[in-house]
Amino acid sequence: MSGGGTDSPPRRGRAALIASVPLFCFWIALSEKFDLFHLGLGAASAIAVAWAVVPLHHAAPTPLPNAHFVRIPLCLHHLAAYAAWLLKEIFVAAFRVATVVLDPRLPIRPGTVRITDRLPHPLARATLAHSITLTPGTVTLECDETTMVVHALNKDAAASLAGDGGAMAARVRRLYARLAPSGTSEGAP
């Protein structure tokens, strides 16, 4: 379901040109070189990357309305809190995987778990899938509109996702509760 319709080459070119401006600024900031060679290289790669990426904006199941981007600053503190929590989880995850791996008995009981999530927005589902992959003993293998298939390294890891994704899904749901544009929610959480 492509809300933006198919991109005609001129439209895609214009969109790519607009998208390449911040990329080019980013290039200048990182390179700190102002000669023609480096600026030209930056401009060329910025346009090439933007051209390649523009169709992806329309490939999302529900194209994000522009209002969405205006709303994000309102919940920056939620985002910061979530990012901090996630960062902590990443280190807990790495430490747990490390202890399992370095244990001479190699105590693993791997398997796959299927979870049904009821997150309202594709971006929320992507965030959850991403977060699951980052945290203790779980990697998201498959993620579509209704279910996720997760590979778990042991029983504890599998149990942490019990009940529609467990605590993490609840956090992601809270993070996106204010963000979700009305009318796209599928079923109450």
Binding site: I90, A94, V97, V101, L153
Partner: peptide, 8 residues
């Protein structure tokens, strides 16, 4: 699991 997490 090992490569993805411990690397990050």
């Amino acid at each position: 699991h090992a490569s993805g997490k411990c690397d990050t």
